[in-house]
């Protein structure tokens, strides 16, 4: 699978959980690799690349870290949108 396509799937996976469940890295890696029958490492790499450019972001709340879709405010602060 192309990386871009995989990243779209990861994004969709995170979008589906938005507001319902705080996803940990592990949840995304396990969930997406099971869904697409991919190696966990491949998913992890693609997800990390998304975090590096701000398509996803690390979050923190309730005493634990998670991964989520960034808010506009975050993107603006990072200079990724105007």
């Amino acid at each position: 699978m192309e990386v871009a396509e995989l990243q779209d799937k990861i994004y969709a996976f995170c979008l589906a959980a938005k507001g319902k469940k705080k996803l940990k890295e592990k949840d995304i890696i396990k969930g997406v690799s099971a869904e697409l029958s991919l190696e966990p490492d491949e998913v992890k790499k693609a997800m990390r690349a998304m975090i590096d450019v701000g398509r996803l972001m690390y979050s923190y709340g309730g005493g634990a870290s998670s991964v989520e879709i960034p808010s506009e405010e975050y993107l603006r602060e990072k200079g990724l949108i105007k």
Partner: peptide, 16 residues
């Protein structure tokens, strides 16, 4: 409570 702040790509090192 701590919020969602940090530097791009990292998930820690900054406590909101």
């Amino acid at each position: 409570h701590g919020g969602i702040v940090g530097v791009l790509g990292y998930g820690g090192g900054v406590i909101g």
